[in-house]
């Protein structure tokens, strides 16, 4: 039987492992992350292995009421071509993840680089204990969560993109004027602000409507004039 021994070659191999696997330091999945239908590639990236890929992050030490959001940095290989939808769930100790304790948001692909860094604002009076991040069920690209940082104040670096989160209202919330009215007003404001994202269309659209309005006014004026003339006759 061959004797098991450690020689200098083994030691060299062991020391060079981080260099051989550069993602090991930063991109490798931390042990306390629970991966669902996600598998890790040798390069340290992750790939979905089913139709429900998500990561459950470790619970926080204590329920935190001060959290204002999460900053994430996700690398993609390659960068997706289309916008894609992600969901962020949270829960407390005594409850599981639920459709009513989540936000969803849509990430737009970056034109330069392979990483998207963004801030997702959160507003929940009940506190947060644990988070779960869901990736698109048919995501075809590899991804690597480089940063998942829970923040407790609004001082986010200016270069970090602020993402608009969307969430579901319960029936009770919908029947509460103090909740539903601001919610609808925010929705309208958000929709109108999106118009500014495509200024060329906005200008053409407004001009078309304005032109049709002016023409209608001219026709109405001519019509009134004609009616007066006909009644005079």
């Amino acid at each position: 039987m061959k004797r098991l021994s450690i020689n200098i070659l083994h030691l060299l191999l062991l020391l060079s492992l981080p260099q051989l696997c550069p993602a090991g330091e930063q991109g490798m999945v931390r042990e306390e992350w629970k991966l669902n239908q996600i598998q890790q590639t040798p390069s340290g990236f992750m790939q979905r292995s089913g139709r429900d890929p998500y990561i459950v992050f470790p619970p926080m030490e204590a329920t935190n009421y001060d959290i204002t959001g999460v900053v994430m940095e996700i690398a993609f290989n390659p960068m997706p071509e289309k916008p894609f939808l992600m969901e962020l769930f949270w829960c407390l100790d005594y409850e599981g993840f639920s459709e009513y304790r989540k936000v969803f948001f849509v990430l737009l692909p970056e034109k330069k680089g392979d990483t998207i860094t963004f801030f997702v604002p959160l507003n929940n009076q009940g506190g947060f204990r644990q988070f779960r991040l869901d990736f698109p069920r048919d995501i075809e690209t590899s991804f690597q969560v480089k940063r998942f940082e829970i923040v407790t104040d609004q001082q986010i670096a200016e270069d970090v993109k602020r993402i608009e989160p969307f969430y579901k209202l319960t029936v009770t919330e919908t029947r509460t004027p103090g909740v539903i009215i601001p919610y609808i007003l925010h929705g309208i404001q958000h929709g109108l602000s999106r118009l500014l994202k495509d200024p060329a269309f906005l200008i053409v659209w407004v001009l078309l409507i304005f032109g049709a309005l002016v023409t209608t006014r001219i026709i109405s004026r001519d019509l009134r004039k004609q009616e007066v003339e006909e009644s005079d006759k």
């Binding site: 029936v171 929705g187 958000h190």
Partner: peptide
């Protein structure tokens, strides 16, 4: 299309 916020209303 106008706003995804409306999708959260029951």
């Amino acid at each position: 299309p106008f706003s995804l916020h409306f999708t959260g209303i029951p």
